[in-house]
Design a protein around this nucleic acid. Structure first.
Ligand SMILES: Nc1ncnc2c1ncn2[C@H]1C[C@H](O)[C@@H](COP(=O)(O)OP(=O)(O)OP(=O)(O)O)O1
Ligand SMILES: [Mg+2]
Length: 328
DNA sequence: CAGCCTAGTAC
RNA sequence: CUUGUACUAGGCUG
């Protein structure tokens, strides 16, 4: 905990929250006023953190539409709590991340989603051309607190840090002026949540490794490559059982399937067979690229001399989209 | 090589 | 009005 509240760690965390420039939490304090709030409240909050008595504020609930239909429930912590979680993240990452699986790619520094797709392509080419494609149902929202804290406690011994993390999980949600308790889940919007998600699913990775599976995982999107449909169906049932019993997580049956890899999409990509296995943009991603390109060109036509930075951004976007995604 | 900013993608 | 992590491209400064 001393490491968390250390001056340089807090300054780095402050920089990050300020530059993200996100919306305020339940207290309505914007990122621009975070420095002022620190000036008046930090000495008290620092003491509370060191004593293990700090209580986070509940998160603000915002619903945003999901691409596949349905809504995503964001939990936005106050800027002060985002600052503290960021400070925790910076200390906990070097403790947990180095021992995560090589097959885990989501939310991790220095790991590219594209490397996950490449690895998947390699497995398919090697003849593991059936995929058990699994996605978890409302993943962050359904994280079991006790299961997660047990995993965190395997590495963290400081009782104050453990208590603080649990209090973040239990901080509750503000719904029309009333605080509602959260008995499960880690907020979609908490800086620490992605790391906690990986800590929880690290047990899945270790189990799949122990079983000798060929797999890649990006957040709750887990692809296991096997040699036959029958093997895939057996693995699917078995892994689904493992997730349910050991991690208390439910597989999203709608989004999951055992199928041929070129019929599925992973991280916005898919495959096709032509002299071996090749990577292509998934139909959905291709469509969105085309739509974007259209609206962009239309805008440049209708307005002959727009803002120069808009044109610059448009050009940069096209270069990025075509170069980084397809060729690399 | 370090910092800062603007875009986009994944979840 | 919409948060978070990570990645990528482009630009600016010394
Ligand atoms: N925009 C976002 N902001 C914050 N967290 C996000 C965002 N998008 C995704 N996540 C995190 C939280 C999700 O639980 C997790 C997995 O994403 P995803 O599978 O798309 O949704 P989900 O698991 O919550 O619902 P579903 O049941 O539809 O799969 O990634
Ligand atoms: Mg999911």
């Amino acid at each position: 905990m001393e490491q968390v509240v250390a001056r340089e760690n807090m300054l780095a965390a402050l920089k990050r929250v300020e530059r993200n420039g996100g919306a305020p939490g339940v207290d309505g304090v914007p990122t621009e006023r975070l420095r002022d709030q620190i000036r008046v409240e930090w000495s008290r909050i620092r003491e509370e953190l060191l004593q293990g008595t700090y209580r986070p504020q509940p998160v603000r609930r915002v619903e945003i539409p999901k691409p596949g239909g349905g809504k995503r429930m964001l939990g936005i912590p106050t800027v002060m709590d985002r600052l503290i979680q960021q400070a925790l993240l910076q200390v906990l990452t070097p403790i947990f991340d180095p021992t995560f699986s090589e097959s885990s790619y989501g939310f991790r520094p220095g790991r590219r989603g594209h490397d996950a797709v490449r690895k998947a392509r390699q497995y398919v080419e090697e003849g593991y051309d059936w995929v058990v494609d699994m996605d978890l149902e409302k993943f962050f929202d359904r994280v079991n607190h006790d299961v997660l804290m047990a995993r965190v406690a395997r590495r963290v011994t400081d009782k104050r840090v453990l208590r603080l993390i649990r209090r973040y999980l239990q901080a509750g949600v503000m719904l029309n002026g009333v605080v509602v308790a959260t008995e499960e889940g880690t907020p979609q919007g908490g800086p620490l949540s992605p790391l906690l998600a990986n800590i929880l699913l690290d047990d899945l990775d270790k189990e799949l490794e122990r079983r000798g599976h060929h797999f890649v995982r990006y957040a709750d999107d887990c692809n296991i490559y096997v040699r036959s449909k029958r093997a895939g169906e057996r693995v699917y049932r078995s892994v689904r059982h493992f997730l349910q019993e050991r991690l208390r997580l439910k597989v999203n049956e709608e989004k999951s399937a055992v199928d041929r890899p070129w019929k599925r999409q992973f991280l916005g990509f898919s495959f096709y067979k032509h002299r071996g296995v090749r990577i292509r943009l998934a139909p959905k991603s291709l469509k969105r690229v085309k739509d974007k390109l259209r609206t962009l060109t239309d805008r440049n036509r209708s307005q002959p001399n727009p803002v120069p930075e808009c044109l610059l951004a448009g050009l940069g976007w096209v270069l990025c989209a075509l170069r980084c995604q397809v060729s690399l």
